[in-house]
């Protein structure tokens, strides 16, 4: 049962990762790319962490996975704000 959950959840995580990367490559404007990037970061990583948590033997790994995902959430949120502000000042070059 745990293996099925892992397969399904990591599959969803991979889907979001690829969707985020496709968005990062395809979107026309810097800020829309930033939008796609944070999706890949938060959702893709979150589902992969959830999927791998089912494989964890002890509770330490599950706690560590949750910690990594929480850090990634915070980091992605603040970093995209900072990068967007840094990019705001530069001249609009395609």
């Amino acid at each position: 049962m745990a293996d099925v959950a892992t397969v399904v959840l990591t599959g969803i995580g991979l889907f979001f990762f690829l969707a985020g990367t496709a968005g990062l490559m395809r979107f026309p404007d810097t800020f829309s790319r930033l939008h796609a990037l944070t999706k890949a970061d938060n959702l893709g990583l979150g589902f992969i962490a959830l999927g791998v948590a089912f494989q964890a033997a002890t509770w330490r790994e599950v706690a560590l996975l949750a910690l990594i995902w929480a850090l990634a959430l915070l980091a992605a949120g603040t970093v995209s704000q900072l990068v967007a502000r840094a990019a705001l000042g530069e001249e609009e070059t395609r």
Partner: peptide, 14 residues
């Protein structure tokens, strides 16, 4: 732009 390159680097990290 530099911001795009930084985004790529951040996705590499994640």
């Amino acid at each position: 732009r530099r911001a795009d390159r930084m985004m790529g680097a951040q996705l590499v990290g994640t």
